[in-house]
């Protein structure tokens, strides 16, 4: 038995009802705990998702240090602009990490055992999602602290952290749903490249590098329509000015719609796997 599919200790085992069917939340909790244990057992599967945004945070704010001098740029600190981007990117890659773990489980056959378990189908989506959220909390906190060390400052007080965490957790739902849907459909590592590439490109086709007012040409039109631009706006709100409802709701709406679509994508993929 590998370390990956080791059974949970008795205390952590999900509780079964009298009919023998485990309820959604305990089953999801069990899956999430297993996934989190894998971080300790296979740190190489999680560390890139943590290190990548830190490196990105340092590299982008250092390389593009001078862009804040462009007239119309909304901050005079490049780290204030790029740290939230790193958080959103790191959070989305935490979801991708869950997708990669699921592909490994599918290839090893362990996922068939999960599907045969007397647990609701929702738990097979909720469990990975809880695990992704736990990873995101680590990513957002660490990247924020690194950002502060590099000079990032909250412009609207400690409350400005709230939209940063919300956008991190929200984008994790989107990426987890997207990654799981791909994993269920491809059932092998071919899904990995598509997961990473699509999210990477989607996140860069936004205001990732510069605000809309500063852009010119084709990217302006693409970024304006890309809903992830609104998510980035939400993440950056606490670092660029005051918290406002007008600046909040577009991001929340984008996250709600994208999350719903991603989870439907994942659920239909799981159904297809059953058939």
């Amino acid at each position: 038995m590998s370390t990956v599919d080791a059974p949970l200790p008795t205390a952590d085992r999900p509780m079964a009802s009298a009919s023998g069917v485990t309820h959604t939340v305990p089953a999801a909790r069990g899956m999430a705990i297993r996934s989190l244990r894998n971080i300790r057992r296979l740190p190489s599967a999680f560390l890139p998702a943590l290190l990548m945004p830190i490196v990105q945070c340092i590299a982008f704010s250092g390389t593009f240090f001078a862009i804040t001098q462009i007239p119309g740029f909304p901050t005079d600190r490049s780290i204030n602009w790029f740290m939230p981007l790193a958080v959103v990117m790191g959070s989305s890659f935490a979801g991708i990490g869950i997708g990669l773990t699921t592909v490994r489980d599918l290839e090893s056959g362990f996922y068939d055992r999960l599907r045969m378990a007397p647990a609701p189908r929702h738990s097979l989506l909720l469990g990975p999602l809880l695990s992704a959220w736990a990873r995101v909390l680590v990513v957002v906190t660490v990247v924020f602290l690194v950002g502060m060390l590099l000079g990032a400052r909250l412009t609207s007080g400690i409350l400005g952290l709230l939209p940063l965490y919300v956008s991190g957790l929200g984008i994790a739902v989107v990426s987890t749903g997207w990654a799981l849907g791909l994993a269920f459909r491809f059932r092998d590592m071919r899904a990995a490249a598509i997961m990473q590439l699509t999210l990477f490109l989607s996140l860069f086709l936004t205001t990732a590098q510069a605000p809309l007012d500063v852009m010119e040409g084709w990217l302006y039109h693409v970024a304006r329509l890309n809903p992830l631009t609104r998510v980035l706006d939400l993440a950056r709100m606490g670092f660029l000015g005051e918290l406002t409802w007008a600046g909040t709701w577009p991001g929340l709406l984008a996250l709600a719609v994208l999350s719903a679509l991603a989870m439907i994508w994942a659920r239909t993929g799981l159904n297809r796997l059953d058939h």
Binding site: F64, A66, I67, Q69, I70, P71, L201, F204, Q209, A210, V214, M215, E216, G217, W218, L219, Y220
Partner: peptide
């Protein structure tokens, strides 16, 4: 090429910066 296209659109106004 993707990064060149992104840069050309994002940083076209940066070419007037000092340095």
């Amino acid at each position: 090429l993707f990064f060149a296209a992104l840069g050309a659109s994002s940083f076209s106004r940066a070419i007037g910066l000092p340095g």
